[in-house]
Amino acid sequence: MEGKPIRVLLAKAGLDGHNRGIQLVGKALRDAGMEVLYGGLRITPEEVVEMSIQEDVDVVGISIFSGGLMTIIPKIFQAMQQNEATRDIPLIVGGILPPGDAEALKAMGIRAVFGPGSDLEEIASFIRGLAAGSAAKEKAASG
């Protein structure tokens, strides 16, 4: 692990343009020493899978502020699950979610949902934990 920076794919899903949150999180993760690959706005599930593989990322973070989040996020999650290469990449979500939605997403397998007021350093340290977890898993798998 030492010396190899954590690679995070960040992107915004949904057709709206609210990118203020993801810009902030991206800066915080870079400041924390991670490599941030930015997928931009309006990312589709197929693009998430494709970029995750191409960029060999450790964690995927999707920002959302669209009223369609309970359709959009599950579609991204399922697309990642259906592909062997992305199945084990942890997916986290950021945004303002109506009460109950965050719990529903976590029950589905989204690893964390960061709502308003989340501490940027906490997000960074949570991602570090996730990356360490998947690295350990990989090591165990390769024997």
């Binding site: 949904g14 057709l15 709206d16 589709t44 669209s66 009223g67 369609g68 359709t71 959009i72 579609k75």
Partner: peptide, 10 residues
Amino acid sequence: PLCEGEVGRD
């Protein structure tokens, strides 16, 4: 199909 889930939401 790109709009699924977003029709009438915002």
